[in-house]
């Protein structure tokens, strides 16, 4: 493609902003992550020596735990969100009344505008000791202060914003699906459930994949949910980065964790996309 000078000029502000706000800070973080940290300082010294120590540290079990925890909650919550959101999206997409459909879509979009702090505190109120915490933990036969119940509430917190986003992402995919296909499948002897499993779901794989990616990425960067609902028992990598930076001012270590997280997340996302498109490549 040939760019004219005016095209280049039009691209310039965006490019400058991209450089100033994204590339430069990232380069700084990358540089900081290789610097030696002296306890008691705020960040590394101007001329601190380069070292691999910050990264070596991450390989110790106490650090790896944060990564494992983040990925565990990320995968689990994203999968639950997809399973819950899919029927919701299907019902909305196939809703014959245009008014009800618009109301439902409006509700889902409205849900996304809710501040995270409000969600988290609402869940805390509802499922904490003053709400139905005793009741629910009793029903599940676990302690309301135990690890399992805390993890459960953290998953609730994540689902609270993942489900509307997943449903909206899936809506378009399902709307593009020819409803006749399910009719054809039923005439050929498949029950409704079997029809959805062998026709709807495989045809929605690209949509499910993007919804999963969005959910998973949001989980990886979740901060407030584990901080408040996790009550110190569940901590994500974001919380670790925060404590490195803000509590002990060990910028080099925080930077190394951040860079590692970025790389691991990118590898995971590319890996999953590659695997799915290899298996279902014919769909796009």
């Amino acid at each position: 493609m040939k760019y004219s000078r005016s095209t280049a000029l039009l691209l310039l502000p965006g490019f400058a902003l991209f450089l100033a706000l994204l590339v430069l800070p990232l380069a700084n973080v990358l540089d900081e992550s290789f610097r030696l940290f002296e306890p008691g300082r705020i960040g590394s010294a101007k001329d601190a020596a380069y070292t691999l120590f910050n990264y070596a540290e991450i390989l110790t079990p106490s650090y790896l735990r944060y990564f494992a925890e983040t990925f565990k909650f990320g995968v689990l919550s994203s999968l639950i969100a997809l399973v819950v959101a899919f029927p919701i999206a299907y019902a909305v997409a196939r809703q014959p009344s245009p008014i009800l459909r618009k109301l439902a879509i409006g509700f889902l979009i409205g849900m996304m505008f809710l501040s995270t702090l409000v969600r988290v505190n609402a869940l805390q109120l509802t499922f904490g000791p003053t709400g139905y915490g005793q009741l629910l933990s009793g029903l599940l036969n676990v302690s309301p202060n135990g690890r399992f119940y805390t993890e459960l509430v953290v998953v609730f917190g994540l689902l609270h914003y993942l489900i509307p986003i997943a449903a909206i992402t899936l809506l378009g995919t399902i709307q593009n699906l020819d409803p006749r296909l399910i009719d054809a499948s039923q005439v050929l002897g498949a029950s409704r459930l079997r029809s959805h499993l062998s026709i709807t779901v495989p045809l929605c794989i690209p949509g499910l994949l993007s919804a999963f990616m969005i959910c998973f990425t949001l989980c990886l960067s979740a901060f407030v949910v584990p901080m408040i609902l996790g009550k110190g028992k569940v901590l994500f990598v974001s919380n670790l980065i925060y404590s490195r930076f803000s509590e002990i001012a060990d910028y080099p270590s925080g930077s190394a964790v951040a860079i590692t997280m970025l790389i691991v997340a990118l590898i995971t996302i590319y890996g999953i996309t590659w695997m799915v498109s290899k298996r279902y490549g014919n769909l796009k």
């Binding site: 006749r180 009719d183 039923q186 005439v187 050929l188 002897g189």
Partner: peptide, 15 residues
């Protein structure tokens, strides 16, 4: 239901 009958249906757009 459709799957409890035995009809063959050719759709207008084939499906």
């Amino acid at each position: 239901r459709p799957y409890e009958r035995n009809v063959g249906l050719l759709f207008q757009d084939y499906a």
